[in-house]
Each structure stands twice: as C-alpha cells, then as structure tokens.
Design a protein around this nucleic acid. Sequence first.
RNA 1: GCAGGCGUGGCGGAACUGGUAUACGCGCUAGCCUUAGGAGCUAGUGGAAUAAUCUAUGAGAGUUCAAAUCUCUCCGCCUGCACCA
Length: 825
Amino acid sequence: MYNYQKIEEKWQKYWEKHSELCRADDESHAKKQYILDMFPYPSGHGLHAGHVESYTATDIISRYSRMKGFNVLHPQGWDAFGLPAENYAIKTKTHPSITTKKAIVAFKKQMRMMGFSYDWSREINSSDPSYYKYTQWFFLLLYKNGLAYKKQGKVNWCDSCQTVLANEQAENGTCERCKNPVTQKDLEQWYFKITDFIEDNGQTSGLLSGLDKVDWPESTKTAQKHWIGKSEGSIIKFKIKSLNIDSKFFLEVFTTRVDTIFGCTYVVVAPEHELINNYKLQITNYHEVKKYVEQAKKKTDLQRMAETKEKTGVKLEGVEGINPFNNETIRIFVADYVLAHYGTGAVMAVPAHDQRDFEFAKKYDLPIRKVILPPVLLNIPRNAEEIRTEAECFIADGELTNSGEFSGLTSEQARKKLIERMEKEKIGIKKINYKLRDWLVSRQRYWGAPIPIIYCEKCGEVPVIEKDLPVELPTDVDFMPTGESPLVNSKKFQNVKCPNCGRQARRESDTMDTFVCSSWYYFRFADPKNKKEFTSKEMIKKWLPVDLYVGGAEHTVLHLLYARFFTKVLHNLGHIDFDEPFIKLRHQGTILAEDGRKMSKSLGNVVNPDDVVKQYGADALRLFEMFIGPLEDTKPWNTRGIIGIVRFLERVWKLKLRITNYPEAEQVTNNKIEKLLHQTIKKVSEDIEALKFNTAISALMILVNEIEKQKELPIDNYKLLVILLSPFAPHLAEELWAEFGNKESIFKQSWPKYNSDLIKEEKIILVIQINGKLRDTINVVADISEDEAKKIAFESEKIKKWLEGSEVLKIIFVKRKLVNIVVKD
RNA sequence: GCAGGCGUGGCGGAACUGGUAUACGCGCUAGCCUUAGGAGCUAGUGGAAUAAUCUAUGAGAGUUCAAAUCUCUCCGCCUGCACCA
C-alpha cells in the first residue's frame, strides 16, 4: 500500500517551493502554448466535480506540453464580482469582499490539493482595483469610440435581484441567476454596441464569419449563430387608411416571405407599436385597444409564453392598411404574439402559410387565402382549396398561385422579382434582421466595477479621465438592494468634481455586468502586473491568442460571445492583430450524481472532491474523472468505479518490487514489452493531444497488465511507464521518480519519443472471411502479398470445410487486414 | 416547433479513413490465499446451445464482398433556442 496522503502532501509542498516548474517564461523563445480554464466564480461551496474534471484535463495537457518543450502559460484567477456574492453578503450581513476572499482561500487550497500546476505568479482577481481599473479602461475605450452609449428603452428587470439584466441573462423569461420571472421596465441604461460586430467590420471578422475559422464544437458555433439570429427578408410599407382617406403614414412590416404577400389578409402590430398612439383619434375603439395593450404590457415574458396556445388580440376599428401589391384594403390588429423588439414590431399575416397567423385567423374568423402550392416533388395533394387544420398550413417554399403575375414562379424566384418591383416602386426594401441586440451592461447593484462616468449639470455626461482610474468601489456602503444602485448613498463616492469644468458633479452609480470583467481577463494573464496598460503589446504578441480553452457549455452564448466581441473591438481599433480570442475550445460534460440525476444540494447527491481525495487520494480522483468517459460527454459518477483506478495506481506502485537491474550485456531484450511501450508512448501522446484521456489511461492499464505478466522489469521500462503516467498522476510519478534515485522533478524530463520502427508489427492476424463472416484467423507476416495470403487462406482446414461444394465468385484482399472469399449461396 | 447531438453487455465505455464488435475499468461467477476482508492472486464472463454453430450495436429498409460506422424512414433520450414573422 502506498501512502497517498503523505506522498501527495510532500509533492505539493515541493511544487510550491519549486514554482519555476510551472512558470510561464516571458523571456523564453520556445514555442508558446496558452492553455486556459474558465476562471471560476469563487462561491462558498468550493470546487465541484465539474471543476475537477476540466481543470484536470487542462493540467494534463499543460504538464504534457511542458515536457514536450513548450513554453506553457497555464494561469488561474477569480471571477469575483457578481450577484451571488452580493446576495450571499446580504444574507450573512458580511461584506462581499470578505466572503469572496475567504472563498478564494478555500478554492486555492483545493486546487493545491488536486495537484494543479498553475502559474500562481499570474493570479488575478476581477474585484481587485488593480484589475477593474482596466475593466473601466475598456469601458472608456468603447465609450470614446462610440461603442458604449446610454439609451432609454424597454429592459428586463429582475425583481428579486433588483436590477436590470442583459437579454442573454433573461432567457426563457426568467433571471439567469435566481430563476425568478423577469418583467419589463422602461429605463435609461448603458449599452455596448455589440451589433456593430455581427458582420465583418473593416478588417475585423464578424461574430458570424469569425466562427468559421475557430476550432470549436459545432453545437456551440450553431448556438451562437442561432442567438445572433440573422434572417434575410424585406420591409414592406402598407399605406394606412382611416375614414376612407389615405393617410401619409405607412405601416412597415418585416417578412422573410415576400413570396406570400398575396396571401396577406390582415396585419398585426405589437402592443407597444407607435401606430396605436399615433392613431389614437382615428381608432374608434381606442378604449378597448388601450385596455388590451395595458394588460399585455403588464404580463411578464413568462406569462406571455404560457399563453402561446391561445392567441389574443383586438381589431383596430377605424384604421385599415393597404397591401401595396394588390391595393387590397385589409384589417389591422394588435396582438401580443407579435414582438415589439423584433423586426418592425409589425407583421403581415398570411394565415394559409404561417402557423401563428393561422391560429389567430381561425380564432377571429379571418380570411385564409392559399397562395403557395407544395412543390410537385413532395407529392402532397395540391388542390385542397380550404385550409382547415394547422397541418394543412404549408409553411415551406413552393410554387406561387393566386398571386397575379407572379403565379407559377417558385418561392425563390418570386422573392427576387417581388423585391425588384418593391424597390423600383419604393414600396419596400430588402432588409437583414438580427435577433441579437446591443448588450445592456449597467446594473443597479453594488458588487461590480463602477462605470467611470460623471454627470455634470453644465457639461452633461463626462467620462472619467484615464489617469483617475480606477474609480474605486467604496467600502462604507449599505449594500442592501433598493432598486437603485447602493452607490447612490455613498457620499464619499458621489462627492466628485466635473473633470471638464470643475463644478460639483455626481458619479454614475450603476456598476458593470460581471460579464464585462470576464470579457478581457485572458489578456491580463499575459501581463498581470502591468500598471500602465491592460496588457503590453509585447506580451499580447508573446502569449495570445489562447490556444486551448476548456470550460462549461453554459457559457455558449454569454461569456463566449462577449469575449469575442471585446477581442474584435481591440482588433478593430488596431490594438491587436488577431480577431478571435480562443483558437480551440472544448466543453467538459456534466458529471451527474451516481443516481443519474444532476448533483444538487437539495437532492443530497453531491460528491465532494475533498471527501474523495481524503479517501482515495488526488491522483485517484484525477484519473477517475478522466477515465469514466470522453471529456465532453455527460457521465454519471460511480463510487465503485474509482476502486479500479485505486487498484491500478497500487499496481504501478508495487511494480517497484519487481525491478530487475542487470548489467547492460546481460539485459534480456524483451521485444514484446519494448514494442508495447513504444506503442503506448504513441497512443498516450496522441490521445492527450486529442483530449481523449479515457483511452490514454486504458492504454496505460494495458501496458501495466502486460508488464505484470513478465518475469523481468528492466528499470528503464519502468521509468518510461512512470513518465507516461506523470501528467495524469503527478504525485505518484514524482515519488517513484525520486525512488529511482533522481534528484530532479520528473517534470524536468522531456516527453519520450517513440521509435516508429519498433512499433511496426511484423506479424499480424490475418482474418479470413467467407461472404463477410469471420471463419478463420491466421498468424502471418504483416506485409504478406495478396497471392500468398490467398494461398494461405485456401490452405486452412476450416476454410476448406466451409468452402466444400461452393463456387468461389470473388476474393477480396485488404492489405494487413483480411481475405474475404465471396461464394455463391 | 427549430437547431445540435446521442442510442453498443448488468454498468461507465472501446472500435483509426466501412474490414476480428464489446478494448480498458466496474460488477458478477468459480478457485487459491487468509482468523477475517469492501484486501491480493488465477481463470471465466453479450445472448442461445452439450457442441458444431447460430445470433446480437434502438427498430426497419437500402448501398457494399463487408455496416456500430454511409443513406433513408421511424422510435426513444439529452442539450440549446423558442410566438424572431
């Protein structure tokens, strides 16, 4: 039995003393490798199984890369600002800086316990003034370039967190943090102009096209594309008519399906649409309309969504629209199934070819006019005149009918022609629409980076002068939430002179969304102590972009989109010469509890890394989490399974007893083991590079199984095995390495190269098939010729028996693999 | 509904560009050792059959000499987005 507790503690101490072992060297000319974890939010719960999984993966690659001779940057830091810390502070009535500090100490201790090889000399903390000074600098950079602005508008408001939220944080109508329903408020807030970077911007690739050049999971790329939500269509202008008089005003609708324009039997506007107010006097049932609008506005997104089955709306009496293509007069409705913030907030309804319009038309008994026939190819009956059910509502492209001169064209052809005519007659234009809106970054909370803006009665909105950064977060503040930023109440904080005119002014009291802090932290690691710049040009050139980024898939749209935006801004303004921050990205899969459910405190099924390490050791936990399955898969924890890893480590340890160290001349050359060793070097190296740790470990197990079967164990073979194991089980490897009489850390060793001559198999098992079924296997020399192989195949007794009385039609030979004899049945 | 992905023993999972399905590990069975064992060692372990052999990668079809792998249809599961016109 090896005493993992003693050994692990011993080497953790050693590594702490010899921090140069994992230091990223600014001076070195060796090829760099920037391997990054998503810096954690230091919560009071400590590391969980998921942290251990991704951090172990990057640790293995970092140790491996260093041994390969790369200059590795593998840093760690703290995403320390944020609502949870503040909420926790409110609950415990302790200042968030104190609880955060405590949590960081605990996290670091656990990371040390796991044997992670971070370069701690580069540790950063986003809540430290020396860090958020540059978060504020970034705000000013954006501000000065017209990319940060304030505007009044509808925003998502979380009543429980007492703050506004970005769209990305209000998914499904609930707050991303506390899961409470989000309501809409009309407020003036700060935004970043992320929409300027959807498409290519000068030399800078856009958020869409940039995705084509990075090595990211396909699902993440499509999720981002989906979030950006590009759709190509057109805006069509409907003239408005009231009291039988044509008005000068137009109602603009956005559609991707101009080809269905002749099927438009009414139009619908969102409850927030300006038309309602502008035509207040003309709308004869204004009271009814107003009542509906007010009800709709009161509903949260969640409530609106809960009603998706039942569409509601009110007809605007007294006003009508005119379809510019056929001059037909049509009804106008207000309904909350139309969203104010998408497109123009108004749609042309084509009930025959849109499910939502169909539902609405059915309910209010509106005309349904079929204008698209399914393509002949699809073999769908084309003549059913009436559309009675949703299923008959054909929503795909097809062939136009009932569409005047456009009848007979395909949807695609028709769109082209219709847009041409529209633009010629100035009744509409081609238009690209996006779902992505600008990023709302201000928060009415305390625990965040203050927005560096000053309001002066005379000069208005004035940016803080760069040399006055950081605008420090006051500590003498009551941080209980009131809906207004707690900073409003800090006299010390508010007492400021206008940088322009010197008059008494007041500071912006909102803080920034924490996602702003995490949008640029990967730059800071390259130059964490810089007091003059966020990172020097030189260090950016040296270390960035990030070569490998590993983290949870929950950041698919939020953090990863924002970080890309920041990088693109820097590129666009000439600060850096790359426009994508993360070359290769991978997500670790969720580790479920043993019962197959998510680990959660309330279910009481959480596996605490501390307990596992105590019972089995850190090396065992590292190996186990890597062994249970592919990194990116969701996989359940298995307490029994870890026993297998413990046994494996014990067996490696016990190999010590079998070392046979004879003089060179007498050394028995053990071909089998030698070959397997080199095959294992190849396999483990390739697997680490492909992040296939589970199969790398299984290759090591196969090697150990084989070594155990041998009588002799030359020390060199053992050494090689231990080196191969070292990135996975660093503590055990160091200990054995020392026992071999080495004075230096094993991580000073260079990674072994395999001998490609040695791993070639000179004998293979040739598979003999008859009609594709395995009938015999024969041991032959690997590069056996086709003729020879066929000859041997037919000499086999088994094959002879199988072939009795059959007529051979064909013989397939696959080099180094098989002979397949095809016979007539 | 849309998008992305998945479906292989009792369980976690292997299987490179189609070429011996079930590597490795857990569990299980038998034996050895032991006062004892949640320890160690040895052997076995997809299913059916005494065996030869047959049969198995969610279901069904197709392409192929050969399919877990490629194509189509269906079923089931997971993840993300979701009244986005």
